[in-house]
Simulated scan of single mutants.
Amino acid sequence: MRADARKNYDQILAVAREVFAADGAEASLRDIARKAEVGMGTLYRHFPTREALLEVILRERFEALAASADAPADGQPPDAALLAWLREIIAFTHQHSGVLGAMAAAIDAPESALHASCVSLKSAGARLLARAQAAGKARPDLEGIDLFALISAMAWLYDQPAFAHRADHLFAVITGAVVKQGKA
């Protein structure tokens, strides 16, 4: 990549991180381009879709979440590892306002730039769930997609002003229905 193109790419990413953090995943791409001092054509040359831009911004965090599912803390029981990971991924979606909708849509959209990362997260959660199930600590009738849907529902609760004050309690209720010992 040419130096000027690399500079534009890095500037777009830096501004997009700030704008998405402030305004959510549905923030205006036009505002991002304007604040990055590039044209819309330059933005779209580097990131042909909103999902492509989100994927680059979120990729490192997605990879860390997947890795934490595969390497739970030493000696951590499978149910505790699952609950810790659920808390971590829900906190992530809460910190990145609006990303939840994009993630949910990408799960069944192979053409989405976010698809591979979301499938990786779903698979990581499914592996944690399978370990807890094998240990007899999680409901045997749940699948990875069910867990992904529950993550979406719980993250949504944290984003709702009417429910935010009850979100931790509701997390305990919901995860209590997932793991047999509802405590981490």
Rank of each mutant, 00 (worst) to 15 (best):
F62P: 06
T93P: 00
A106M: 08
L82N: 04
Y44D: 02
M40F: 11
T49M: 12
Q76P: 01
D70F: 00
S117V: 04
P48S: 14
A69R: 07
A106D: 07
S117L: 11
P77D: 14
F92A: 08
A113Y: 02
D74A: 14
E88A: 15
L53P: 04
A84E: 07
P48I: 00
F62C: 13
E88M: 06
A67L: 09
P72S: 08
D70P: 02
F92W: 13
D108R: 11
M40Y: 14
L65W: 01
G101P: 08
R50G: 02
A52C: 06
P72V: 00
D79L: 00
L53D: 03
L53S: 09
L54Y: 07
R50L: 03
I89Q: 05
I57M: 15
S112N: 09
G98F: 10
H46M: 01
E51K: 05
G41W: 10
L114Y: 12
G39D: 10
R50S: 03
D108I: 05
F47P: 04
A80D: 10
G98T: 07
E60I: 04
I90G: 04
D74V: 00
A71I: 01
P78W: 03
A73T: 13
L43C: 03
S97W: 06
I89A: 05
L58F: 15
A91Y: 08
E60W: 06
S68F: 03
E63V: 08
A102N: 11
G101I: 08
A104P: 01
P72Y: 13
L114F: 12
T93V: 00
A66F: 01
P110D: 10
A73C: 06
S68L: 02
F92L: 03
T49N: 12
D70A: 14
G75K: 11
E55D: 15
Y44I: 10
